[in-house]
Simulated assay, not measured.
Amino acid sequence: MTRYGTDVKLFDGSSPAWGGPMQLLDAVKDFGLDGINLRTLDELSPTLDAGFLAEWAAHARELGLYVEMGLGKVNPYMTAELPRVRDIGEGSYLVGMQRMIAVCAEHGWTNTWTALGGYKGQYSGLHITDRFRGEAPWPDQLAATAKFLHRLAPALREHGVSLNLETHEEVTTFELVRLVEEVGPDVLGICLDPGNMPVRGEHPDDGIARVAPYVRSTQLRDAALLRTGDSIARFLAPCGEGVVDWGAALRLVLSANPDLNLTVEPIGPVRAEMPVLDLDPEWLASHVDLSAAELDRLRAAADAYGARAAAGEVEDLAQLRAPRPATAAHHDFLARSVAHLRATVADLVPVASSV
């Protein structure tokens, strides 16, 4: 039976609806959900306090909630931005992650999250993601990430933990699949977030098909696409209200992994507008795997969404850019997404049962 949950971030203010670490479990259960993906273990306990973590894990089990835990990020060019992980390792970021892997295994949290970079909202243009860090070309960052993942792999294998790389806004699905296959799909998987794929010029339907065999966790959102000047703007939207074909997507990922939990990553006050710089020569040169045909499909999807917005069928540019009350918007995004996912999965059941 498919289970549904929510992504939770405790420290960055984007998930204000749940309360503190213990209260959030009750709140998620009361919302009618089956589990959570907590962004990083160090948010739950910066010191990995054994007593507190045992109590928290026991309460999650009592409520029947699944728990998927995050372990920090794995691109050595940006890990200095995550000092709590280094603190856990007493000066070693690698040791910090190894210790968190062991703790997760102890509590049965063997499906874990990571990403290669972060959103840099204080900047603009190319520099909103780590892909275009001036001190290191992206291929160098990918090579360093692969080396770090190889160093983590023995701990992952020892403890039976899968580290799942998110389809985040700085990395392409082509690059993620190569990392998984290089380091080993026994220890690496994919955390699917289709809403990020257009930022890298990928049509979500194509990107989902590429990663589907390796998807072990999810942070699901849709993508609304609108032309703004000489670029395309990507906004995050509730599942079913953007350009993703959810029927095809869920059929693919659930066929590959029938036990996959469908976790939504809701968003609150704003819809995280990001540009698709598809006419910028430097941007284009960085996307060596992206075909002109797929980029054209993405542009066509933006035109189709724009036509629907003009007809009043979906949110238009002004609505997508309008700020919203944080908690109400967070809950609304989550509820609309889960409702659409449940309905879509229900429609898949007759097909799946006939195979």
Rank of each mutant, 00 (worst) to 15 (best):
R216F: 02
A311S: 14
L260F: 04
H127L: 10
F235K: 01
A146I: 13
V276F: 01
G19A: 15
D140P: 00
G247W: 05
Q319S: 14
T218V: 06
E175I: 02
D34A: 01
R61H: 15
G51K: 03
G89W: 02
G35Y: 00
D347C: 06
P185Q: 14
M97S: 03
G306M: 06
S45E: 07
W18E: 05
Y214C: 02
P76Q: 06
V161K: 00
E169Y: 04
V180T: 06
V211T: 04
A237Y: 01
C191A: 09
T47A: 10
L236T: 03
G121Q: 05
E166H: 01
R297S: 10
R210Q: 09
A249Q: 01
A115R: 00
W246L: 02
V28T: 02
E170G: 04
L298W: 05
P198E: 02
E282K: 13
E313D: 15
L176A: 02
A248R: 10
W246S: 09
A335T: 14
R151P: 06
V338F: 03
L260T: 04
E202K: 11
A248T: 13
M69P: 07
D49I: 06
H159A: 11
D34V: 04
L290D: 11
G195N: 09
I232M: 06
G32Q: 07
V103S: 01
L290M: 13
A272N: 14
V28C: 05
Y77R: 08
N111H: 09
D230M: 12
Y214W: 08
L236D: 01
T47D: 14
G125A: 11
Y93E: 07
H159V: 05
V355T: 13
T40F: 05
V67S: 12
V8C: 06
S15E: 07
G240L: 07
A285S: 14
L176M: 12
V345R: 04
R251I: 01
I88Y: 08
T327L: 09
D245Y: 03
E282I: 15
G118H: 09
A329V: 14
I232S: 07
L192A: 05
G96L: 07
V180K: 06
R251Q: 12
H59T: 03
P185L: 02
A248V: 14
A80Q: 12
A310Y: 10
T218N: 11
D49H: 03
W56G: 00
S15Q: 10
P83Q: 06
E90K: 14
A256V: 04
H150Y: 15
G306L: 06
A300P: 05
I190Q: 03
T6E: 02
I128G: 08
E175A: 07
D7A: 12
S286Q: 09
R336W: 11
L25C: 05
L298M: 08
E182P: 00
W138N: 01
D206Y: 04
R131D: 05
I128Y: 03
K147Y: 06
A155D: 12
Y214R: 00
D193V: 11
L320I: 08
G312Q: 09
A335P: 00
D332N: 12
T40C: 06
G72E: 05
D87M: 07
E55C: 07
T6D: 03
A285K: 14
P139H: 00
T172G: 15
M69K: 12
W18N: 04
T114V: 10
T79H: 05
I208E: 01
Y4F: 15
D347S: 15
A223E: 01
D280P: 10
V270A: 14
E241A: 02
R234Y: 01
C104I: 02
